[in-house]
Design a protein around this nucleic acid. Sequence first.
DNA 1: TTAATGCTTCGGCTATGGTCGAACTATGAA
DNA 2: TTCATAGTTCGACCATAGCCGAAGCATTAA
Lengths: 228, 228
Amino acid sequence: MKDGPDISRIGQLIGDPARSNILSALMSGKALTATELAQEAGVTLQTTSSHLAKLVEGGLLRVRKQGRHRYYSLRDDNVAKVLESLMHLAATKGHLRTRTGPRDPALRHARMCYDHLAGDMGIQLYDAMIMNGYLLENGETLDVTESGAHFLSQFGIDLDALRSERRALCRQCLDWSARKNHLAGALGKALLDQVYARKWAKREPNSRVVTFSQQGAQSFLALLGSKS
Amino acid sequence: MKDGPDISRIGQLIGDPARSNILSALMSGKALTATELAQEAGVTLQTTSSHLAKLVEGGLLRVRKQGRHRYYSLRDDNVAKVLESLMHLAATKGHLRTRTGPRDPALRHARMCYDHLAGDMGIQLYDAMIMNGYLLENGETLDVTESGAHFLSQFGIDLDALRSERRALCRQCLDWSARKNHLAGALGKALLDQVYARKWAKREPNSRVVTFSQQGAQSFLALLGSKS
DNA sequence: TTAATGCTTCGGCTATGGTCGAACTATGAA
DNA sequence: TTCATAGTTCGACCATAGCCGAAGCATTAA
């Protein structure tokens, strides 16, 4: 009575530690080369090459050739969603040898999670949006309130444009380092984009770390504190 | 740079065909015995026993002893969510040797998907809810409109009670047999419960098939057709 | 007690697949 | 052309783990 789509193929792909490391690394949303991914996976380049071939063949990754480099990235948002829900599940299980999160303090403070902001700063953003009544927690889903829509448009975000995207507007995403929620989805990305645009923070090359300037952090926190 | 929770363990658990069959079977929401699951998995009882032990140890299943039977079921809604997203991903990929769905016509017509209604009847329900303006598609999320809330309360569903549940109120779920959406989440379950309560349909024992009585099907379709 | 059913444990077989060294291809630079 | 860097393919090794037969517990029925 084998029913439904072939789940086990995908599970098998994710089930290898080297491959899951690769996938986790790509959750940063950035495209990475085979050599960089070999570093992340902790295996040699040959082995990584074979893993990457399987992941592409299996439809989890896509690859773009550019000069003598090959840039790998997650194939689409569905893949990211599966990985997110898996991480959520693994985290809620506590999972024995639980690593409470990245050791690097910079990573705990602010980092990319797929394409949105995670870490302490991401959590503060999320909490503030709730506290100020901009977002409404509705079970596991999130709704933007009217005052939230007003706030966001003031901040330079075109909510209607985001709504028309295929991906979810806003979604909770469990933070590994702190076990609290931060904001994912199109809105999460848009907010981070604004933070970059205002030069409040910048992304460290070849890393998931997001560095806020001193002034940027102040502006960011001030924004969250103000009720309009 | 191994980061975040241990995804690969879970992937590995799902990655075995016998185990993924077991998990798929349990998506019906019903607790099943080891012997029944051996049937589903297509391996002997001994092998199944070892698989079940691993799934319980891995936190994906829970088991209740009852007399000389052991009833296995998915551990919580998080597990179901991961499986749903995996099925979604596998389905959207078409996945080569795509099985367009269950062969059994009864299964294609109406069946359980975890705890809500799937198959043609499920799709009709979903489409009608959208057409009548009771539900609003908002990217990948779903919102209940005011008229929808009115309709549901008329139908005997306590929306506020559902909202207070931890699980999502309503969610799209891709139908394997038809590649269209049907309604999942707490609301999906509540609607199906009402269908049972009104004796419009009943569940076949030891199967995912949901059988509508002739009169029940008529009432069901009439309900969907009416604008109030 | 004896028998039957439901399930687990043990042991041995086998296949799959992850791993790396070495050789090969491809693009770019000098 | 020659060299260097990026990546793939091949071949061999080896550990993991899935599989089943047989035997062992555990619970219920007679």
